[in-house]
Design a protein around this nucleic acid. Structure first.
Lengths: 197, 197, 197, 197
DNA sequence: CTGTAATCGAGACGGTACGTCTAGTCTTAGG
DNA sequence: CCTAAGACTAGACGTACCGTCTCGATTACAG
């Protein structure tokens, strides 16, 4: 990632050149890492990737599309399965905070959320993505429900929403350095609220 | 708010002209209401306010500063005090969602959050503001604690954080039309989690 | 000429496909007729002809080459032979003005001259073509010389040059609607200048 | 002319900065001289002048406008007055050929004619300019008419048109190196044609 | 009562980025 | 070896804003 150029790249015929696609995504990631969201322009990406702007626009109609693809090709945060919901959710959040803090993922996702405030397509893509993640995170709660750890009438996705919102807000307000203890406490408040009496 | 122009406004001597300041803030609000965050540029505000750009830059060094001032001069959401925490928090959220949905405040705050992802000053101001709001919201929990409705060792601001995060995330993903029932359910999960056994 | 497409044209093996060549020239002419010189791009011709750009570049290395071939396959202006030089030259110019005015030839030739100002090859081709035309037109003067209507020491090509220049300049400044009387007058000035005393 | 930069040029308030205008015209001239018409782009001029593109577009809506202004601020060719029409016209053409050949004027005017084939505004400006020049050149013929050297019913502008067309065509086909003798001969043909019997 | 200093609208300035267009080259897949 | 197709790098197009600058007019207040 981030190598300054791929000098002699050419067309490989009437089909997409995956080298170019990679170079563009790498460049986008590098630009975002080095100059952050304010410096993230299609021009800068094209310069960095030694790609023509139309090549970028051909495959990614907007900055948002680029951001989404960058975000999605990055390593996912693993979802723990310890047999205890509080442990699972706390582990998940701790992992997520660390992932966002220690890789460029945090910047990418922050940028995507920001972009979604200007760009309808980005908003739709983000909504979609967020919905998927809530479902995904919700499975932790469903498993707990199956174990009888959570009451049967609990809305798993709503719980996932509470947990994810906590993470998003910390990301957006530069509070990814939150204490692990605090994260666990927040999770505990929610988990206790959904524990059957 | 939003009158198209204030044609013959001039300097009133060697001091700030409050008419200009008002015209600029009004224009900024109107631009944001009409064109949204993507159309919110200093140029557009200056045009709308019939003000010179330097006049804007003199008093508000960035878009973020303008956004903050607009947001803060808008009417606050009232914090209920019904004697029952769940009722208080649910009412607060319902009011907040309605306020964001039905006035331009939602757009203003969304824009401010987006801007904070590019602009350090905006980020600091937003962090500051959010901290204040958590404290403010936290007082609802403190009151419940005083009533014995909430366990004594509960971190009131953390609870406020969970609740506010839920609201922010809905704002940022265009889900302000959430069912009142769903909002109440989410609040109940958290409140039950902090209720003493 | 100008049919919008030749949809299923394919290679006919290891040799030039004359259908393609025709389709390309037809398309070029049509593009020039409809969008004029500013809209005349290789891309547009390729789109219109349903041809690949490389197919065009293989046979015509530049826009100029295309223009020259289009111009040359168009019907020539006939050179009158009335037995009187003034009549011949005036008739020739009137025909030429009408031809340029009423067919796409005028646009083609204008474009070629314009292109020759950027493109060395076009310039050479144009110079060559113009030389040939001067020789051709010069024959009218040579015939008159043989009849004794023109002095023996007159440079026939130079006279042809004067006459052709008059036409070119009118073409380039959109004055093809010049009165026939004015054209005849101009011709008369020149013819009288070369008449023996 | 053509100095590479004017580094610290700034706005001088809400009015046009003549330094910028000069720098842009100088740069345009230099670009045309060095890269010719094919290399003459607004971008290149802006780069060379260290000016923003919008500054150029603010004052010159098209390349044509720039070309016209460059051409017009260049030194004019002087119109001789020897008392003999043939001498006057021959001298004028010889001067004009030399001027076009030895300064950048030839390139500028060639470019302007080429541009006029794409750009309506340039066409209009060129038509206008050419009309003025014909009138101007026509004065040489009018003077000769007053001296009785030319018949009274001769259309002076038409004669001027013949002479100018000869020059234009030589410019456009790279024949500015024409022999002085040939130029004089051509002029003689025309002058003799308008001499009273 | 006059001069100074800060303010105002206005708009030009050098720049950067936008998203689109064309140029000319290259490769593929198939006739 | 030709064809259609279309991707590729490169860079110009004309526009929108950015944040800075200077202007000339205006007016409060200090001397």
């Amino acid at each position: 990632m981030g190598e300054p150029a791929a000098p002699g790249r050419k067309s490989i015929g009437a089909k997409r050149n995956p080298e170019s696609a990679d170079a563009i995504l790498d460049a986008a990631e590098a630009v975002l890492a080095e100059a952050g969201y304010p410096g993230f322009s299609i021009e800068a990406v094209a310069r960095r990737a030694r790609a023509g702007k139309p090549t970028i626009y051909r495959w990614w109609p907007s900055k948002a599309a680029l951001l989404i693809e960058i975000y999605q090709r990055q390593k996912r945060v693993e979802v723990p399965d310890t047999g205890a919901l509080e442990e699972d959710l706390a582990g998940f959040l701790v992992n997520l905070f660390a992932h966002w803090r220690d890789t460029s993922s945090g910047n990418v996702f922050r940028s995507l959320i920001a972009e979604a405030q200007s760009d309808k397509a980005a908003a739709a893509a983000l909504a979609d993505y967020a919905k998927g993640r809530r479902a995904h995170t919700g499975r932790m709660i469903e498993r707990a429900k199956a174990r009888g750890e959570v009451a049967a009438d609990i809305d798993a996705e709503l719980v996932a929403d509470l947990v994810a919102s906590f993470a998003w807000t910390h990301l957006l307000t530069n509070r990814l350095d939150e204490d692990e203890a605090t994260i666990r406490t927040a999770v505990r408040y929610v988990v206790q609220g959904v524990t059957p009496p």
